[in-house]
Structures are given as C-alpha cells and as structure tokens.
Nucleic acid binder design. Structure first.
Lengths: 171, 171
DNA sequence: TAGGTTTGTTTCAAACTTGAACCAAGCCCG
DNA sequence: CGGGCTTGGTTCAAGTTTGAAACAAACCTA
C-alpha cells in the first residue's frame, strides 16, 4: 500500500503541535526547576499524590496517572524520597507492592510552589486561548489519549490485544 | 495578589493535554526507535535538513526550527554524524559557524523510514481528528508557540525585553 | 584599532531516561 | 502441594538532556 502523506494542512498542524509542545514543556520545566528545584514530571508526581486519598498511591497507579514507565517512576521517586518530599511504604495488601506517600514537607513544597506553577500554565497556555479553544483542546487531547491507550495506536490494521489492568491500591 | 487557580474545565483540559502529549511522544519515539533506530528528535533533525535548500542548515537555525537548545543539538548532531547520516561542515561566511549537511545515507534513511513515521502520526493523531479539529489544533498550537516565543511567556506582568535574532544561514 | 561586548558553538559533569533483565510474590490448575 | 505463568517493582548499563562555563570569531565604538 502506497503511503498517504500528510496534507499541507496536516503538516502545518503537526509542525505547530511540535513547536508548541516543546516550547511549553520547556517553559514549565524551566519555571519549576527555578522555583521548586525539580522538573515538571517530579512536580506532577507530588501533585498526583496530593490529590489521592490519604496522599498515597501505589507505584503502578502513579505511573498510570502520570503516563510514564515504571522504571522512570522508580528513579523519580527515589530522588523525591531522598529529598524528603515523599516516603515509600510497603503495601499492606500486596507484599510485592510499594506505596508512595507524600510527606508534610512534600505537601509544604507543593503549597509553596503551586501558585507560581499555575501562573506559568496560565500565562503560557490558558491566557492564549478562548473559552471555546479550551473545550476544543480538551476534546482533541482526550481523543488522542483514548486512541493511544486502547492501542488503536498501531498503524497495523489488525486485531486488538485488549489487555487492561485493574487492581486498585486499596481493595 | 491571590492566585487564580485553574477552573475545573481548565484542569480537565490540562490533564488531557499532559496525557495526550506524553502518550503521543512515547508512541512516536517507540516506533522510530524500532524502525529507524533513533528517537523522534533525531528524525526531526534529518527531516528539517531534507527540507532545507541544499539539505543543509546552520546549527542555530536547526535549533531554532526544532525548538531545542544548542547543546542538545550539538549532542544529537554528533551522534548522527557518527552514524554517517549527516556531516558537519564549516560555514563559509562566518568562521564561527558550522553547518549540518544531510548525507546520501541520511537521505536514504529518511526515505526508507518516512512511510512508517507518517503512518504512526496518522494513526495516533490525524485519524482521531475531524477536519475542523485539525484546524483548531493548528490554531491553538500556533497561538501557544507565538506567545512562548515572544516571551509573553512570563507570568510577570511587566516590560518586554524584545531581543530578536536575525542572521540567515547564507547572506 | 584596541578593548569590550555579543554571537555561534562546543564541552563537561551531573541529572535524567530507556529498555532489557531480574527478583519476588501472587495466581492457577492439575 | 508444586510447578509454571503473570504482576509489581527494582536494577543496571547505555544513551540522552541540562545548564553553566569555556572558546573563538565577529562586531562595535571611542
């Protein structure tokens, strides 16, 4: 089958997408590194914990929410633990598991740095968009994420493996 | 001034954005690593060169187009040069400068791997979007990029330094 | 035209990411 | 029970990214 290249409209969109995502990720990383001493991902990990019941989550759940690999998470959590911002506990219901728990200090760091982070996200993203564009962005991103998570991902036009995880952190 | 937190609509959009961009970047990196033995950024570098007149660009231009730092580019170009996919030449008009030039082999690699790459971009992104959404995405991303490039970036509500670069690669 | 600043690029060490391999602990079924 | 498969996490080496510092050529400007 002969390749269906991108139309010029698609090319423009793709280029704009690449530029925007690189620039945005850079801006946010820079700001957080500056003000919180950590990159965006690490901040997200703390933020996810602070949203969770009891400020704690299983490693796998955390990886799932932040959309990163387990090994990347392990490294990040080790660093954050060293910094005293979270603590590793072992899961009571599954002896294999470990749980990351936000510490007081982690919570404090989050509270101290959240305003600056939000301000950056606003200035870089939401201040540039109309209300409708915010809706559109959500719609678009949700669609992309759905596709990639369900492995509609592959160009290959064939069967869907359909393995999904379950296992909550507290049964 | 008291922080203006994200509305729940904005939060949803932001989370969706993070998820989509992570998943998409991962999917594309995985595919290219698999089929071309290099991550997306490296492919982009080659692609940008192939688009340029004479298949060559100044380092700074290349960094500008790919939206990455000069030092990151230096590393990437060194690797690609080692692989024989491009060559470094020194700029004839500016003795400080160096120029990256796509080799035959680089061009061949690009030609060989482009179809797979396009297929992945399509499957992961464009196949999920309506025509209007493609327009919306372009619009949104262009806005974000414009803001971040002109340093409307900063949350700080003050003066704009306004330093812009010029200097084309071939005067 | 000398001296100071700016611009283009590289270098270096420290931090981070990747993917494959590994180790347990749970799970399943004869 | 007793293997064998799956799942949750970590480890390790190789590769990549970061940011600050170093260099060198180019560009002022008095």
């Amino acid at each position: 089958m002969t390749t269906r290249w991108l139309t010029s409209k698609e090319q423009r969109a793709w280029r704009a997408y690449i530029a925007a995502t690189h620039l945005l990720e850079d801006a946010i990383d820079r700001q957080l590194q500056q003000d919180a001493g950590m990159p965006h991902l690490y901040y997200s990990i703390l933020a996810n914990l602070s949203d969770a019941p009891e400020h704690r989550l299983r490693m796998t759940d955390l990886a799932e929410r932040t959309k990163i690999t387990r090994s990347r998470l392990t490294y990040a959590v080790t660093r954050l633990e060293k910094d005293g911002l979270l603590r590793r506990e072992n899961c009571r219901w599954d002896k294999r598991g470990s749980v990351a728990a936000l510490t007081e200090e982690g919570m404090a760091t989050l509270e101290r740095t959240a305003p600056g982070h939000v301000a950056t996200v606003r200035a870089s993203l939401f201040d540039q968009l109309t209300e409708e564009q915010v809706d559109q962005l959500e719609e678009i991103c949700t669609g992309i994420a759905r596709a990639l998570e369900s492995d509609d991902a592959r160009p290959a036009p064939d069967e869907v493996p359909w393995r999904r995880r379950s296992s909550p952190s507290c049964p």
